[in-house]
Structures are given as C-alpha cells and as structure tokens.
C-alpha cells in the first residue's frame, strides 16, 4: 500500500522541522533535513529523512551550526559519522506530522537517542536520580 501523501507540497512548510511519530503514534524525532537521489534522467527525488545534529547543524549556516556539527562529530564513535537516516520506504503518511509504518526502535534514530542517553545525559551529575 502506498503512503498517504499530498500530490504537491513544499518541503519547508510541510516537512522540515515536523514531528515524526512511529507506528504507535509515539513522537521520537523531527525532520532535520531530506536526502535526495537522482533518477536516470537526473531529476532529484527524496529518498530519506535525516535527523539529529549532523542534519540540523549544516542548515543553520552560521558558527553555531558549525560548532554543533563539530561537537557531534567529535563525540560520535564513528570516524566519519552520517546523520540518522529514515528511508522513505517506512513513511506511511504525511500530514501535519510524519507518520512511520515501523516502531521507533527499528530506526537509526533510536541508535542516536540511545547514544545521546549513554554518552551525554547519563554523564550529567544527578542523571541517575530521576525517580527522586
């Protein structure tokens, strides 16, 4: 079954910075950028949604964005990290929110969230006293 998508939309208005929810309607990420590929005729089309600092930082086009990407690259375990990527194959509907057909745990964003929790949030003093 095809995704429910308007026949025409504008990326900035209808996609970028929109909330992404999984198949249980749980919000877990935002659309930070879109990755394109080119067909045999050279026409570009959207193949994936990109999430995380590696996708949002370059969009800022200023020193803050450069710092965000630099810090993200420095902290990331990979030598040349890529932003978390959600392929369009798992997008089920686009309205005011982007709905996926899969669980958040099945996406690369979950890996990013786990990494952030493990390497940043859990290292903040008092992070282990959540229930207090």
């Amino acid at each position: 079954m095809n995704a429910e998508v308007p026949p025409m939309l504008e990326a900035g208005l209808s996609l970028l910075d929109r909330q992404i929810v999984d198949c249980h309607e749980r919000p877990f990420a935002k659309v930070d950028d879109l990755e394109i590929a080119f067909d045999v005729l050279g026409h570009p089309y959207v193949v994936a949604i990109l999430c995380g600092p590696g996708a949002s930082g370059p969009r800022m086009r200023d020193r803050l964005g450069t710092w965000i990407v630099a810090i993200w690259q420095r902290l990331h375990p990979a030598v040349d990290p890529d932003p978390a990527r959600i392929p369009m194959t798992v997008v089920a509907r686009i309205d005011s929110t982007v709905h996926l057909s899969v669980d958040a745990d099945a996406t690369a964003v979950r890996v990013l969230n786990d990494w952030t929790l493990q390497h940043i949030i859990n290292r903040i003093p008092g992070a282990d006293h959540g229930a207090d």
Partner: peptide, 21 residues
Amino acid sequence: HDVRLRADGPFIPGFGPALRI
C-alpha cells in the same frame, strides 16, 4: 524560500511515487 515537491517520482516500495523536486 522553499522547495516544491511533487509525488510523481520513481516508485519507492512501501511509499509509492517518490517526492520529486
């Protein structure tokens, strides 16, 4: 200011016609 997309690109399994720029 914006990038206009139209759902008439190459077929993506599970999604349908891709969003073409």
